[in-house]
Each structure stands twice: as structure tokens, then as C-alpha cells.
Amino acid sequence: MTISAYPVTEVRQNLEDFELGLLLEAIFYQYHFDFRGYSKASIKRRMTKAMEHFGCDTFSLLQNRILQECDLMPKLLTFLTVPVSELFRDPLYFRDLREKVLPHLKTYPSINVWIAGCSTGEELYSLVILFREEGLEERTTFYATDINSDSLKKAKMAIYELDRMKVFSNNYLLAGGKASLSDYYTTAYGAAKLDSSLRKQIVFSEHNLVSDADFAEMHLVTCRNVLIYFEKELQARVIKLFNQSLSRKGFLWLGSKESLLFSPHAHAFSVFLPNTKVYQKETSLEHVT
């Protein structure tokens, strides 16, 4: 990080950014979580909230706490990662996936699906249900990864608040659901728990998109609304990672506001469903470092 001689009026703003940068470096140094490539604006907003929660007035104070108290890091992670999601979020996208992508996947004897950044599992279970209804669940292995171990735990438990189920059921039907969402969950104590049979084909694992490599050959990779929080270089790195992981003609599914259009690696993919943000791998990029 370079510091040049800024005029006095701008010093305050830059000091904060500078502190933020130091904080991210400290986190990387101590815990090896690399948030330096994340979108600056979104990291700043989250860190500010975390700062307030931990009772620190500046990023430097937060940095001090982080470095000294190890058990703070998992809690900080929950601020930095986004746990907001829904079952069958953007239901029309799921419908498109069901009608246009799954028939292609049916031609493979066994299918690997990677849900990168699965958070608390809403999207994961949406896909499992979709695959089950299309008769593909048996031959599919779902790899659900996330950087946040708390979110993974929650995803494993598959418990969601009962009053969210109404919205979910609606989404499910819009997404072309063949039965009723209530067939997949039971209620108790004011909460809804998804059927444990849905977990049969799922492998949960911690995985950091910033630093880790690919681990199996995928036919479908979904990474929705994660990339928008990354800076351009990091986005490119992740896209390359996905490209490495995908088999030829494998599918990559991004979030509704994301696109490969401006990515340096766009040439390695073809646009399969432009409105639904589904891409297909055409060529392999060189190995990622």
C-alpha cells in the first residue's frame, strides 16, 4: 500500500481506508483468511458493523482485538459472509435450470454438482429437491462448500423458521415444483426441518475460494451472489478455478446480477442461457495457482 502526500482535507477518509487495509492484512497474517480481494465498499460496510458489535471505535482497535483474541475470528466471519438467502431464490431461474439444463445433465451416468458458497444451505437443498424431482438425485453427488464453518453447521441441520416457509413454498411452485414443499419438511417447535434424506448425497466441506484449488470434476458449478463481493482480480481467479473444475461442456451458474461479460476469461465459456446466467465451458484455461 502506497501513501502519497494527499492534501489535508482528504486525510480523514484515507486514514480509515488505510486502517481497513491493515486490518485485512492482519487477518490474513494471523488466520490466513484472505479478504483483501473482496469488494472494498462491501467489506468496509461489514467491518463497520462488526466494529460496532465488538465495541471498537476504529478499525485499528478491532485489529488489536482480532490479533489478541483467537475466538473472535469465527464471530467476525459471520459479519463478513452473507447469510441471507431463500429456498428457490429467483424461482424462474430455477425453472429454467430444471427445463433447460437438467436434460443435458441427464445424459451423464454420474453427476457432480458444486455449490460454492453454500451459506446456510437454502440453495443447496433447492437443488437437491430439484434433482430429486427430475430423478437425478441418485446419481448426483453434491459438494457444498463455504468459508464459514458456522454456516455449514446450520446448513447441515437444515432448520429454518416456520414463517419463512410460506415464501419458500411460493418460490417452489413458481420454480416448477411437482408436488408441495411441505412434503420435504416437518415442523416442530415453531421451526421447519428439512427431511434428512435430502442430505444423503451431500458432501459438506470448508473451502476458501480465495486460496484453495479444485477437488473433483464437476458437471455443474453454482456460485450465486458471491462474486459481487469480490474485486475484479479475485473474480477472475475464481472463474478460472471453476473453469478448471468443470468438465467440457459443464455448466456454470451465476447470480442474477452477475455476468461473465467483462471477465478476462469470458472466452473460455459460451453463453448457454443469457437471461438465467448459465454458461458452458468450451475450453480449458491453464492451471490456476
Binding site: 436434460p103 445424459t107 451423464y108 461442456k249
Partner: peptide
């Protein structure tokens, strides 16, 4: 078992001719 001898396995279906 098949993968030892075959480069590619396609299950017949709607999109299999394309593949």
C-alpha cells in the same frame, strides 16, 4: 468399469443426440 475402456459415456435422453 466402463471408464477403463471408454472415453465418454452418454445416457440416452432428450439432449443425448446433441451430445
Amino acid at each position: 468399469r466402463l471408464a477403463k475402456y471408454s472415453k465418454s459415456i452418454i445416457i440416452k435422453g432428450a439432449k443425448s443426440p446433441e451430445r
